[in-house]
Amino acid sequence: MYTQALDTHGKEPISAAAGDAAGQRFQARIDADEKIEPKDWMPDAYRQTLIRQISQHAHSEIVGMLPEGNWITRAPSLKRKAVLIAKVQDEGGHGMYLYSAAETLGISRAQMVQQLLSGTAKYSSIFNYPTLTWADVGAIGWLVDGAAIMNQIPICRCSYGPYARAMVRICKEESFHQRQGFEIMLTLAGGTAEQRAMAQDALDRWWWPSIMMFGPSDADSKHTAQSMRWKIKRFSNDELRQKFIDITVPQAQFLGLRVPDPELRWDEAGQHFRIGPIDWSEFYEVLKGNGPCNRERLQARRDADAAGEWVRAAAAAHARKQAAKQATGARQP
């Protein structure tokens, strides 16, 4: 899954230190499509932007396990259950790849986890919506992971090596996520009237939040230009959003479902689907912490952290004991 362009509303130091010689050499390397690696010199603003973006992305993967995990015990068949467990485990794995990538920039894992648990870090607002029915699991795979893929594929070519490499790994796995989601929708859409209604209801609730996953429109996106210069970002929010709409609307039509937008129309001249206005007030409310599940999600992470504390302490104690035993053994021939 994905973190949206939340960084557009952070306290970002915009200056790229472009004035000095080191900054110019750095930009020249980026312009030449060279990758930046952990020990290379980089402007502090580049480092901070990446730390924020990658850690938010990691948090999104971890929190993203919750809405779907909600349905593991109630999956309608053993096959669906096995698939959902695998998918949720993948999301956890994605979080791990990304935390590791962020750590190469000098922030510790403990710091990032602390930022998430204390509520100071952001994660994708999409995960603050509830999964009310089994169809939501289908809609998340199809729409949320679909939007994630659209966002993430360009990041595979990001200028920062560890982030780009983590993203290659993630993108390979996301494709399974999206297809299994669409297949759930396809099965429901071909089912009973009740199942079709369930699929439609899921699309009704997940469509707009998915559209908003691409972040604020370009006009309101303050830092896109800098991120593009640094090749952290390759396309603007609106460009990616439009691509997503253009490929997803025909898929909804194939399912025989109605996209919940009365103003949606095909623009023959532009060769694009055009959507009606986006209600950004909802987006910002959810971002501020007032979405349907913000408090619940954070509490679930805090509970998991607290419940796992004794396991971590035991593992650390065991490691210390083993190390001490080994040291003593080494001294006695």
């Binding site: 750590e103 510790s108 894992r109 403990a110 710091q111 986890v113 602390q114 648990l117 204390s118 805090r302 952290d305 607290a306 504390e309 971590r312 302490a313 593992a315 650390a316 490691a319």
Partner: peptide, 16 residues
């Protein structure tokens, strides 16, 4: 407020 990860062990486990 809950403790940060592995606070009891004095920070993160070693990196591999």
């Amino acid at each position: 407020m809950t403790q940060p990860e592995s606070a009891a062990a004095g920070g993160d486990w070693p990196l591999f």
